[in-house]
Simulated scan of single mutants.
Amino acid sequence: MARLEGAGLAALGAALADGGTVARWQAKVVEVPGSGCRWWTGAISGRGHGRFYYAPDRVVIAHRFAFGLAHGLDALDQVRVLGHRCDNPLCQRVHPSHVVASSYEENRREWVARRDLAGSALGDPRGARRRARELRDLARQDPALVAADLARLRALYGEQLLLW
C-alpha cells in the first residue's frame, strides 16, 4: 500500500475519529455463525479485499480501517501490510488469529504455505475475487447463508481438494 502522507493521512485520521464514518463502516460488517470472522459486505477490490470510502474520493482497504480503529492512526501508518491468518480477505476482525500486522515477505510465505492445504480458502476454485463477491452477497442477504456455503464446500472437498 502506498504510504499516506499529509492531507491523505489527516483525512484518514479524521475518519477514524468521526462517529458517523465509523458507524458507516460498522454497518458493512456482519458476524457469520461459526466462522469467527467479521465479514465485510461493502465494495470489493480486484483481489477480494473490502474497500471503504471514508471520504469523497478517498478509499482504504476495509481491514486497514479496522486496524486503525483498533490500534490508532500512528500504528496503522507504521504497518505496510496486514495479513489475514484466517485466509478470508473480507475479514475485519483485528485479532492474532485473523488480521495482523505483517510484511510483504511474511504474507507471501504464509500464502504459499497454506494455498494448497485441504479445504483452504486460498485454493477455492472460484478465485479470490469471485469467492469474495459471492460470499459477500450471501452475507448481505443472511450471514447464515455464508455459513451454509462454507459447510457445503467442506463437504464437497472433504479433507482433500480435487486434483485436476
Rank of each mutant, 00 (worst) to 15 (best):
M1S: 13
A2C: 13
R3N: 05
E5N: 13
G6E: 08
G6Q: 10
G8W: 07
L9H: 11
A10P: 09
A11S: 13
L12S: 03
A14E: 15
A15I: 14
L16C: 00
L16P: 00
D18F: 03
G19L: 13
G19N: 11
G20C: 06
G20D: 13
T21K: 02
V22D: 02
A23F: 12
W25R: 09
W25A: 08
Q26W: 13
A27Q: 15
A27M: 15
K28N: 10
K28L: 15
V29M: 06
V30S: 09
E31C: 12
V32S: 01
G34Y: 06
C37S: 03
W40P: 00
G42C: 11
A43K: 11
A43T: 13
I44Q: 05
I44N: 02
G46S: 09
G46E: 08
R47Q: 14
G48Q: 06
G50T: 08
G50M: 12
R51N: 11
R51K: 15
Y53N: 15
Y54F: 15
Y54P: 04
Y54W: 10
Y54T: 10
P56C: 03
P56L: 04
D57V: 12
D57N: 15
V59H: 14
V60T: 14
A62R: 01
H63K: 04
R64I: 08
F65L: 07
A66M: 01
A66Q: 01
F67W: 10
G68N: 08
L69N: 02
L73K: 02
D77G: 07
R80E: 14
V81A: 05
V81W: 14
L82K: 04
L82Y: 06
L82D: 03
G83M: 10
R85D: 11
C86Y: 00
C86H: 00
D87F: 00
D87Q: 00
N88Q: 12
N88H: 09
P89T: 12
C91E: 10
R93C: 05
V94N: 06
V94K: 11
H95N: 08
H95I: 06
V99D: 04
V99G: 04
V99F: 07
A101G: 08
A101V: 13
S102A: 07
S102V: 04
Y104R: 05
N107T: 02
R109H: 07
R109I: 04
R109G: 03
E110G: 01
E110A: 06
V112Y: 02
A113N: 00
D116T: 12
D116R: 07
L117V: 07
A118T: 12
A118Q: 11
G119M: 04
G119L: 05
A121R: 08
A121T: 03
L122N: 03
G123H: 00
G127A: 09
R129Q: 13
R129K: 14
R133L: 15
E134C: 10
L135Y: 07
L135K: 04
R136A: 12
R136Y: 05
L138I: 11
L138F: 09
L138P: 02
A139I: 12
R140H: 09
P143M: 10
L145Y: 09
L145D: 07
V146C: 04
A147Q: 07
D149L: 14
L150R: 06
A151I: 04
R152S: 05
A155W: 10
Q160H: 15
Q160K: 13
L161T: 10
L162I: 04
L162V: 06
W164P: 10
